[in-house]
Simulated assay, not measured.
Amino acid sequence: MADLGFKTTAPVASGKPADFTAVFYREYALLARNRVNLILGLTPMLVYLLLVNTSLGNVVGNITYRGETLPFAVFLLPMVLAMSVVSASGTTGMAMFQEEMSGVSTQLWSWPLRRSRFLAGKLLAGVSLVLAQSLLALAVAAIIFDYPFHASHWIWLLLALVLSSVAFNGLYLAAAVLISDYRTFMVLTSVSVPVLVFAAPSLSTSQQLPTVLRWISTVNPVSYAVTGMRDAAIFGLGKAWPSLVVLAVVAIVANFVAGRALLRRTRNL
Rank of each mutant, 00 (worst) to 15 (best):
Ala88Phe: 01
Thr64Ala: 04
Ile143Asn: 01
Ala167Asp: 03
Gly170His: 10
Glu100Gly: 08
Ala88Glu: 02
Ala167Trp: 06
Ala82Lys: 14
Ala167Met: 09
Gly61Tyr: 10
Arg115Lys: 06
Val177Cys: 03
Asn169Leu: 10
Ser134Pro: 00
Asp181Ser: 15
Gly61Lys: 10
Leu124Tyr: 06
Pro78Glu: 03
Leu159His: 03
Leu131Phe: 14
Ala139Trp: 09
Leu131Ser: 09
Trp109Glu: 11
Thr106Ile: 09
Ile144His: 11
Ala174Leu: 13
Leu119Asn: 02
Ser105Gln: 14
Pro112Tyr: 05
Leu81Asn: 02
Val177Lys: 00
Val74Gly: 00
Ala73Leu: 06
Phe72Arg: 04
Ser105Gly: 13
Gly121Ile: 11
Ile143Gly: 04
Glu68His: 07
Leu171Met: 15
Leu136Lys: 13
Phe149Tyr: 14
Ala82Cys: 12
Arg114Leu: 05
Leu76Pro: 00
Ala120His: 03
Pro78Gly: 07
Val130Trp: 04
Ser110Ile: 13
Leu173Cys: 03
Met83Lys: 12
Ser105Lys: 14
Ala167Val: 03
Glu100Gln: 14
Ala125Trp: 12
Phe97Tyr: 15
Ala132Gln: 06
Ser180Pro: 00
Thr106Arg: 15
Leu138His: 01
Leu171Lys: 09
Ile63Val: 09
Leu113Asp: 02
Ala132Glu: 04
Asn169Met: 13
Gln107Leu: 14
Ser116Asn: 14
Val86Gly: 04
Gly126Ala: 11
Tyr65Lys: 11
Ile63Glu: 02
Ser164Arg: 06
Leu124Cys: 14
Leu81Trp: 01
Arg114Cys: 03
Ile179Met: 11
Met94Gly: 03
Ser102Gln: 15
Arg183Asp: 10
Gly103Phe: 01
Glu68Lys: 14
Ile144Phe: 13
Ser180His: 06
Gly93Thr: 09
Asn62His: 12
Ala132Ile: 01
Ile63Cys: 03
Leu135Val: 15
Leu123Glu: 02
Gly170Trp: 06
Ala132Trp: 01
Ile144Ala: 12
Ser105Ala: 15
Gln98Asn: 04
Trp156Arg: 05
Ala167Arg: 12
Pro112Leu: 11
Leu131Cys: 11
Lys122Met: 11
Leu76Asn: 02
Arg117Ile: 02
Leu171Val: 15
Leu113Trp: 01
Gly90Phe: 05
Phe145Gly: 04
Arg117Glu: 00
Ser128Gln: 01
Leu81Val: 09
Ala167Glu: 00
